[in-house]
Write a protein that binds this DNA or RNA. Structure first.
Length: 493
RNA sequence: GGCCCCGUCGCCAAGUGGUAAGGCAGAGGUCUGCAAAACCUCCAUCACCAGUUCAAAUCUGGUCGGGGCCUCCA
């Protein structure tokens, strides 16, 4: 059982061997805090949340760093538009980011540094690059000289000459080579600025990640993650900076997640198909969003649509209903210790074996470049096995059935937990989902309970016409009544 | 123009050389006063063409279609 990961740097799936046995250093590019996060940010952060959780589950001591970019052109622009300071703006959206991630059920990284808190460290690396002749000052700006770094473009595998042909020098920039990028930007009037050997200014976008990663993870570390769009130029430039300054391999494994499209189109503000996490969570349970994202491989593009979210909701509901049923049974049925069980039939043996092997199969899937879709498939199979056990007549009198059921329940919840799923009490989750769904039907749980009681009397009197009328009436409003030996419950269609 | 990715059942989606996981939807059945849920059974030869191979959804070449990056972007 060895973990294999797809490494953008080599273009291959490779066996994961950390630099130090048992320990993993992992850095993921966070957000630039000038607006609310959208579904794409949700995906990136959920994906790496899973990487973090699974590595720890696999026994690694993981140091996970995710930064906040809190100094940037967009922040300055937006702050000016609103007439507040950059700091006020960035703090507002750092809070919003934290709230969104908490709502999505993400684990907190080990460290969440802000770029503005590492200005001296940033300056030290810039100076070091200047001293080594890999960067140059030009009227208060400092640029990285990409010609001095032979490995430039090794991550994105682009061709320098062709890139150069397409590159432009923006007005006001004093680059020697159009491909050079800013490490330090001279302050214009009204912009946030820090004193520096090159005059007042602020760091460029890329250098902050080099500075914060070395601070927490050292000059060389295991995993660097981010969205595919960050490969060039951001991650390429981080490599140039860090390897240029420290002269050793920056990152061993580069992991990049795919995009979220909306109704088959790229999400963008101009297309008007831009969904923030907040908008989505008004409509969908956070766990449904997570389930949707994990039901595809992290490197594939996924399509955000109501249909797909509804499918995810249906799938997650299947899990919770089974988990609830198993909990209900196990809570009220003590597992007999001495009652002999019937001979186990072949098909039952198959179910038991499947549950027995669940964890191995789950890990096998996750070890293959975090194949969450396959892992979830295995969990579904375990759930079918559990439902099958619970569907057997008098299974609750069979110790073996109960033991396997309990084993299945424990494993599904444990492994689901590695994916950040099934973290709610099943009954509570189902009740909450139902009440939310009820909101626009004009019904209330109390009203439904009243009708159920009335129907119960009708059925008792064998007035099935009235009983069916009540059920049809509720069905028309999307509420299904479920009769069972324990009484009648309801659920949404 | 350069670089890169993708095209698997009605929908979503695993699978990258050994003969197609899983979910949703659909059909039949068991159960039920009737239902629902659950369970059982059924439901694809992998865009197309030509190759390589004992063997290809999986490799190679080509065609068609879709998408991304090359400017800020998860």
């Amino acid at each position: 059982m060895t973990l294999r990961v797809f490494n953008t740097l080599t273009g291959n799936k490779e066996e994961f061997v950390p630099l130090q046995p048992g320990k993993v250093g992992m850095y993921v590019c966070g957000v630039t805090v000038y607006d609310y996060c959208h579904i794409g940010h949700a995906r990136a952060n959920i994906v790496f949340d899973i990487v973090y959780r699974y590595l720890r589950f696999a026994g690694y001591d993981v140091t996970y760093v995710r930064n906040y970019t809190d100094v940037d052109d967009k922040i300055i622009k937006r702050a000016n538009e609103r007439g507040i300071s950059s700091k006020e703006l960035s703090e507002e959206f750092i809070r919003a980011f934290d709230e969104d991630m908490a709502a999505l059920g993400l684990e907190l990284p080990t460290h969440q540094p802000k770029a503005t808190e590492f200005i001296p460290q940033i300056q030290a690396i810039v100076q070091r690059l200047i001293d080594k002749g890999m960067a140059y000052e030009a009227d208060g700006d400092v640029y990285y000289a990409v010609d001095k770094f032979p490995d430039y473009l090794k991550l994105s595998k682009r061709n320098m000459d062709e890139m150069r042909a397409g590159a432009r020098i923006a007005p006001g920039e004093r680059k020697r080579n159009p491909m050079d990028f800013a490490l330090w930007k001279a302050a214009k009037p009204g912009e946030p600025a820090w004193e520096s050997p090159w005059g007042p200014g602020r760091p460029g976008w890329h250098i902050e990640c080099s500075a914060m990663s070395v601070e927490f993870l050292g000059e060389s570390f295991d995993i660097h993650g981010g969205g595919k769009d960050l490969v060039f130029p951001h991650h390429e430039n981080e490599i140039a900076q860090s390897e240029g300054a420290f002269e050793q391999p920056f990152v061993k494994y580069w992991l990049h997640n795919g995009f979220v499209n909306v109704n088959q189109e790229k999400m963008s503000k101009s297309l008007g198909n831009f969904f923030t996490i907040r908008d989505i969570l008004k409509k969908y349970d956070p766990e449904v969003v997570r389930f949707f994202i994990l039901s595809a491989h992290y490197r594939s593009p996924i399509d955000f649509s109501d249909q797909n979210l509804e499918d995810a909701k249906a799938g997650l509901t299947r899990f919770y209903e089974s988990l609830k049923a198993a909990h209900d049974i196990l809570e009220k049925t003590p597992i007999p210790s001495q009652v002999p069980c019937e001979v186990v039939k072949d098909e039952e043996r198959e179910v038991y074996d499947r549950i027995e092997a669940l964890e191995d199969r789950f890990c096998e899937a996750m070890d293959d470049d975090f194949n969450t879709a396959l892992a979830i498939g295995h969990l579904f199979e375990a759930v079918r096995g559990m439902n099958r056990i619970m569907g057997e007549k008098r299974f609750d009198e069979c110790p073996l059935s109960l033991l396997v059921l309990k084993d299945g329940l424990t494993k599904v919840e444990k492994l689901g937990g590695v994916l950040g799923l099934f973290r709610s009490a099943p009954a509570a989750w189902l009740a909450k989902t139902q009440e939310e769904g009820l909101a626009d039907s004009g019904l209330s749980p109390a009203l439904i309970e009243g009708l159920i009681e009335e129907r119960k009397q009708a059925r008792k009197n064998r007035d099935f016409a009235r009983a069916d009328a009540i059920r049809d009436e509720l069905a028309a409003k999307g509420v299904l009544l479920l009769d069972s030996p324990e009484g009648t419950t309801w659920k949404l269609k």
